[in-house]
Design a protein around this nucleic acid. Sequence first.
DNA 1: ATGGTAGAGCATCTA
Length: 259
Amino acid sequence: MIRFATWNVNSLNARQQRVEQWLADIRPDIVCMQETKLADDAFPALAFESLGYESAHHGAGRWNGVAILSRAGLTGVTLGFGDDAAPDPEARLITARCGDLVVVGVYAPNGRALGSEHYEYKLRWFARLHDHLDAVTEPGDAVIIAGDFNVAPTDADVYDPAAFVTETHTSAPEREAITALAERGYTDVFRARYPDAPSVYSWWDYRRGDFHEGRGLRIDLVLATEPVADRVEWAVIDRNARKGTQPSDHAPVVVDLAD
DNA sequence: ATGGTAGAGCATCTA
């Protein structure tokens, strides 16, 4: 069995002790992390190595930053879109082979406001993600795209859809970026396993007591091609990791794959 | 009433 997980940690400096405790508790084999908020030379690769993980990190410090931890192999790392002619100005994408899996870790842009330049960047970023998949995968590959997509795929993934009509994360163009991945053969493995589960979220605003009031969004996704989706034995959003002192505003998504 | 909190880093920017 391979245990795969993704977690937006919202600063690894602030979260390292919690992350290490969580690794000890959950014992994932492969982890995609987002929002490390670290430069590459500040990434604690040795700390993760001492816990048995190889790692790769792509970050510029302060904001963004993505990483992959693996004790199932870690080769062929690509940082960003792998296009030197037009590098992404922000560190939001990392790709590697972990054993028989191609793992694509994503931290999609937030978008900030509908119609803003940041929103346009978000939509262009998803378009480039499709081009990236063409470049790094072949039909039939076992591929996982996982991370913080900053899009709630359907209204079932939103605590109050009406409240988001004027906000990002639920607009038709953003959702089309996810459905286009579905049309490419990528299954949302959590939703596939729990098609009717209501009020299951992965992110809650720190403000207003949103976590305790159940006001969240499901924006952290594990998308997988059929050879991976067919191996899913278990999937869960680890709400326990959102509790207690100094939590991230996101909960991890954990997926077990049969060998 | 356009609010609230957390993180980076030291004035605001980002989410």
